[in-house]
Structure formats: C-alpha cells, structure tokens
Amino acid sequence: MTDAVLGARRARLPPPPGHKFPLGKYRLLRERLVAEAVAAPDDIAASAPASWELLATVHASSYLERVRTGAMTDREVRVLGLPWSAALVERGRRSTQGTVEAARDALAGSGYGMNLGGGTHHAGRAAGRGYCLFNDLAVAVTELRRSAGFDGRVAVIDCDVHQGDGTAELFADDPSVFTLSIHGGANYPFRRAVSDLDVDLRDGVGDDEYLGVLSSSLDEVGGADLVFYLAAADPWEGDRLGRLALTKAGLAARDGVVLDRAAAWGAAVCVVLAGGYAPDVADTVDINLATARAVAERAAAQRSVRDPAARAE
C-alpha cells in the first residue's frame, strides 16, 4: 500500500476551520490499518513527489507553472476549493506519485495495489477542481505506458458520488481507456465532461438498487487489463456531500462486486480512495478500512495461489 500522506508529514495541510476536506482521515486510516493487522507498518510505503516533468505529460505547462509558483488566480483557487500553499502542492504531487506506484505494484506483484489517498478525478488538463490539483489516474496511465511499456486496456471504475469530469475530459480521445462514472445525478459537478458510460443516480438510491446498476454497468465495460477503482466513501448515507443512501455494508458489497469482476477479467487493480466527507471522520475511516481489508484479503489469496509455500503456512 502506498501512503502519500506518510511521505508528506512535514507538509501538513491544515484546511481553514470548518472546511469539509477530511485531512485527518489519512493518519487515522493508517493507524487503524496497522492496529487491526490489515497491513504491517512496513507494508505502507511513503511516496516521493511526482516530478513536474511527469505532471506535464498530462497537464498544461501554463497551469503547472501557476501551481508551482503560487500564481493561481482567485477564481482558480475558488474552483479548486482549497487555498494555495506549498504544502498543498507537495501533498498533491506525492498523492499523484502514490497512484503511479500503486499501479506499478498491481501490475508487478499480486495483481493489487492501493493508494491510501488518490482518486483526484476532477482535475482536468488546465484546471484543478473540487479539491483535486492533479489528475493522478491520467498521470499513472501515461507513466505506465511511457516507462513500463504497458499497452493494455484500462478501465476506470469511478464510484465516487461526484462525476469524474476531469478523468472523462483527459481520456475522451483515448479508445484504450474506458471511463465509467456512477454518481449522484443532482450533485457536483454541474458542468460535466462525458465519460464512456455515465450513470446518473437519483437522490436517495440505496444498496440494492446501486449494486444492481453497478453490476449491469460493469457488463458494459466488458473487461480490462488494468482497473483503476475509485472506492470513495461519499455514497454513504450519512455523507455531508453525498445524496445517496448506501450503508457501510452496502459499500463493502460494492467493493466486492468491483474487485471480483476485475478478477474475473484477469485484470490488475489499482485502488484509490477518492472522496468521503462524513460529519464524523471515523465513519469515513470505517469505510476506507473495509475497502483496504477487501483488497488485502484478495492480494493475500492471490499470493497463496502463486506461492505454494505461502499457502502451506
């Protein structure tokens, strides 16, 4: 598991008082992963910052220069939803690199990799939006193709309650990437890009309806060699920025549906956590922890199949 926040402890990012961005969840999640033996401390690796050269393979150089130097306009800062700071930029770079490394882990190891942050799906080519400074998914795909020789089919399975507009924009002309976004139809963003498959859900959709729509949507994806799964916590019934009504058990079932379908495709899976804005951050951490546990269990099972000695242990 890759932890961008672990690598950026010195770059603390306190949001303004009362802000909805749940910075505290990252430390709490890491602590619970270790305390509940979902991951050993050594299994959680810090990520370095993504280079500006790598970010420039996806984002406009003029935008990156404003981000790097703190010259973002007032409007850009409002649209981003977070005040500019050097700590914000470093954290964004580390989170992006975390997804690159998690995707590499997925392709090279047990078939699974996970970033304990990531999923910054609102960032477009020349703009940050909705707390998303850089688009980690697009950067990861570009880097895998450039440095790892990956040329397989990619599926982005975006289960954040908000449409993945930046990801849709960046992959709009790439037939090797299928973008699926399942989100609240009456929720942010209100000006949207077009994914390969967008599913607009009515307010109040609960577990059974959601899981049925998810399964049928995955049928339309058809398959992939690498899946990026945005396992967001914000479809939860108590989320401040959601409008759906999934329970924690329903969200755990959602994780199982996506992970098992990816396994049936024979796809490697990179999991990122995206949004989650519960009034009590412990609820978001509960949901993220269940996702991490599901990933860890499947990764361990895959290792045991590949390694008879591990199975015997």
Rank of each mutant, 00 (worst) to 15 (best):
D3L: 00
A4I: 02
L6I: 02
L6P: 04
G7S: 04
A8R: 12
R9L: 15
R9E: 08
K20N: 03
K20C: 04
L23A: 15
L23F: 10
G24I: 14
G24S: 12
G24T: 13
R27E: 09
A46E: 09
A48E: 15
P49G: 04
S51W: 14
W52K: 08
A56F: 01
S61D: 15
S62G: 12
R66P: 07
V67K: 12
M72P: 10
T73E: 06
V77G: 15
A87K: 09
R91D: 01
R91F: 04
G92E: 02
T96E: 06
Q97Y: 14
R104V: 13
D105I: 01
A106C: 05
A108C: 03
G109Q: 01
G111F: 14
L116V: 00
G117P: 04
G118N: 06
T120S: 12
H122W: 08
H122E: 10
G124Q: 08
R125C: 05
A126E: 08
G128K: 05
G128R: 00
G130D: 07
G130Y: 03
G130K: 02
F134Q: 11
D136W: 13
L137F: 08
V139N: 05
A140Y: 08
V141Y: 12
T142C: 10
R145A: 05
R146Q: 08
G149K: 06
R153E: 15
I157C: 07
I157Y: 11
G164M: 00
A168D: 09
E169I: 02
P175A: 03
P175N: 00
I182V: 09
I182K: 01
A186R: 15
N187I: 13
Y188Q: 01
Y188C: 02
P189N: 00
R192H: 04
A193G: 11
A193Q: 12
V194W: 08
D196E: 15
R202C: 04
D203H: 11
L214P: 14
L214E: 13
S216N: 09
L218R: 05
D219E: 08
D219G: 12
G222R: 11
G222N: 07
D225Y: 14
L226F: 06
V227S: 15
A233W: 14
P235N: 11
E237G: 00
D239L: 00
L241P: 05
L244S: 11
T247P: 15
K248T: 09
K248F: 03
G250T: 07
A252Y: 10
A252V: 09
V257D: 10
V258Q: 01
A264I: 02
G266H: 07
A267I: 06
V271R: 04
V272D: 06
L273W: 12
A278V: 03
P279T: 15
L289W: 07
A290W: 05
T291N: 14
R293I: 13
V295F: 04
V295S: 03
R298V: 03
A300E: 07
A301L: 13
Q302R: 07
R303S: 09
R303N: 07
S304P: 01
D307L: 13
P308W: 00
A310L: 15
A310S: 08
R311Y: 07
